[in-house]
């Protein structure tokens, strides 16, 4: 293993608290502002889904209608409105994306920080992380999801459980740099306990990286959820973008009802793109080389 200082570029030990000014600087970048706007719209759509469109249910006479004024995104083979399905799908996708990413972040940050500061833990945790990273996650997720009863919560747990190693790896490398800083030695000399040093000194120094990870992990989780639902392993009672795609594929209408695949795909694309761009821009703003700091 390489020396800690070589794993990542040095970062200032200064806690980059998101002050009003830095938020302003962040949002002044058009790509950041746009992606944040998209994320906000998605969240609003998820929260107020019942006000925007009635929950898709039952069967209607307008079967496989192309997009029109009455049905913005067209209808499926049961006559249900695709727009309503996409809006309600936002809920599932966001809930799973966020919850799974929180699981991954909590696990990953804890393991990453522990291994960055406590040497004995590092040896074990690194091996586990490496093994987890080497595992073919998609086949494993498919297997697990097929065995358990598919529901929003089991999916969240499965996706979250397989997403933590990347976070752990990222946090560890940053944590190693920070824990080699003189002020950590200072804290130790002053008699601070290991717990205090990790939670009060190192954690704040990596918190912006955690925020970036939340966004990136969430976008990966959304893709995983859509993928599993498309394979028929999603919650059959919850609308999700993957399920809309599955319905189209299963009923053999992909060739004649482009709207049934295009709109949920666009929604996935928009959400993932927005989360990724927002995360990347955020990472940029805290990069000292860019800020001349």
């Amino acid at each position: 293993m390489s020396a800690p200082v070589l794993t990542e570029q040095a970062v200032p030990p200064v806690v980059p608290v998101a002050t009003g000014r830095s938020w302003y600087g962040y949002l002044r970048q058009p790509s950041a502002a746009l992606s944040v706007l998209v994320l906000v719209v998605m969240v609003v759509m998820a929260v107020f889904a019942p006000l925007i469109a009635a929950e898709p249910a039952g069967a209607g006479p307008d079967v496989l209608q192309s997009p029109s004024g009455a049905h913005w995104f067209g209808t499926d083979d049961l006559g249900q409105d695709i727009f309503a399905q996409v809006v309600w799908g936002t809920r599932t996708s966001l809930v799973i994306g966020l919850a799974a990413s929180l699981i991954a972040i909590v696990l990953g940050t804890a393991i990453g920080l522990a291994s960055a500061y406590f040497r004995p833990i590092d040896a074990v945790a690194t091996v586990i992380t490496d093994v987890m990273l080497a595992l073919p996650t998609l086949p494993l997720m498919i297997m697990l999801a097929a065995v358990v009863n598919p529901s929003v919560w089991t999916l969240t747990l499965i996706i979250g459980f397989f997403a933590w190693p990347e976070v752990a790896r990222l946090i560890r490398s940053q944590g190693l740099v920070v824990s080699a800083m003189p002020y950590i030695d200072g804290a130790r000399v002053l008699g601070a306990s290991g717990w205090r040093i990790v939670t009060r000194e190192i954690l704040p120094a990596v918190v912006s990286l955690v925020i970036v990870s939340v966004l990136l992990t969430a976008s990966r989780a959304v893709i995983s959820e859509a993928g599993l639902s498309f394979l028929g392993l999603g919650d059959p009672d919850a609308w999700s973008w993957g399920r809309i795609l599955l319905n189209a594929q299963r009923s053999g209408v992909i060739a004649i009802a482009w709207w049934q695949t295009l709109f949920p795909s666009l929604a996935i694309l928009l959400l993932v793109l927005a989360a990724t761009v927002a995360g990347m821009r955020f990472n940029d703003t805290r990069d000292p080389r860019r800020n001349g700091g």
Binding site: S31, W258, T261, V277, D284
Partner: peptide, 28 residues
């Protein structure tokens, strides 16, 4: 310079997505 680059990246990403969609449609 930064913003221009960001905008450009976004445009490329959107462009790629659109062309994917179009080629998907032409499949049939």
């Amino acid at each position: 310079r930064k913003t221009v680059k960001g905008r450009w990246r976004l445009a490329v990403a959107l462009g790629a997505a659109l062309s994917l969609g179009i080629s998907g449609c032409s499949l049939n």
